[in-house]
């Protein structure tokens, strides 16, 4: 029996989600006994056009070339899994979509902007091709990756845990930073998966795993306001790593606007 074939593709990103593979330690060698890794540039495998069973895609789409590449990846893959915030929501760099001033930014940074070919907006993978499974997180963890491979190889639907960080926090018996210290924590509206890392470290969750199910963002924003945050600061809470995820985008926009109309300047 041939082993299932796997590819790891990189688009616009920091390389951090690929480390979920490279940081596996000896498990990486065991994984290789169970699957055939055909394409993974950073690890030294180079066969971008290979037909595979599972393609993992890191990064967002931000150039015309990347649009062509992702269509090819889709055509060559049985399952396409987007890994991390960039691939699933556009990530931190999608902040440039909010201002709509990409051209100006590019011209400010590059002396020869005519050589920089980029799309006006950063897009998640699913904006261009069908995605079979989205793994959220900035970064995703090795556990998420291995669980996804296992589920797909067994032909079962992977568990899509959209619970809140808040619930994980309670399970871990961490002290609530918002209730006890008045810190504006995004835990009530953020998807679990990190193990409630930030609250356990005594700090605010900053939403890197994207919106949870039924995220009550407007309610949380009002709570932030009650804690003394100005509208601009509230907008910044929602417009960070997953600014393009609809509930965060929407609530950020409400408070960004209200900050803009504030007469305090």
């Amino acid at each position: 029996m041939t082993r299932p074939r796997v590819a790891v593709h990189k688009f616009s990103s920091c390389d951090g989600c690929q480390l979920a593979f490279l940081n596996l330690g000896e498990t990486l060698l065991q994984l290789n006994e169970q699957v055939d890794i055909l394409h993974f540039l950073e690890a030294g495998m180079n066969d971008a056009s290979a037909d595979v069973d599972i393609a993992f895609v890191e990064g967002s789409l931000s150039t015309p070339d990347e649009l062509t590449r992702i269509r090819q990846v889709r055509a060559n893959s049985r399952y396409l899994v987007s890994i991390g915030a960039c691939a699933t929501s556009g990530g931190l760099q999608a902040l440039r979509n909010l201002d709509g001033n990409h051209d100006e930014w590019r011209d400010a940074i590059y002396a020869r902007p005519e050589f920089i070919r980029t799309l006006k907006e950063v897009r998640p993978i699913a904006a261009e091709v069908r995605v079979d499974l989205e793994l959220w997180g900035c970064p995703v963890s090795s556990t998420q990756i291995l669980a996804a491979i296992r589920a797909l190889l067994f032909g079962v639907a992977p568990v899509d845990d959209r619970d809140r960080v808040c619930l994980e926090c309670k399970r871990q018996q961490a002290v609530c930073v918002m209730v006890t210290q008045g810190i504006p924590c995004m835990g009530p509206v953020t998807r679990t998966g990190c193990g409630a890392l930030c609250p356990r470290f005594g700090r605010d969750c900053y939403g890197c795993y994207s919106p949870s199910e039924t995220a009550q963002t407007a309610t949380l924003a009002r709570r932030f306001s009650g804690l003394g945050l100005l509208p601009d600061a509230i907008a910044r809470r929602f417009w960070l790593i997953n600014s393009q995820a609809p509930p965060f985008l929407q609530t950020g926009r409400v408070f960004h606007r209200s900050a803009a109309s504030d007469p305090d300047d």
């Binding site: 616009s12 931190l92 440039r96 930014w105 920089i116 910044r236 960070l240």
Partner: peptide, 21 residues
């Protein structure tokens, strides 16, 4: 690699946010 313009979107952020960005 496509540019991601970090230096630009750091503008207008609070100093406390910089480490996470």
């Amino acid at each position: 690699e496509p540019p991601r313009y970090f230096e630009k979107f750091l503008e207008g952020r609070e100093a406390e946010e910089v480490v996470d960005i």
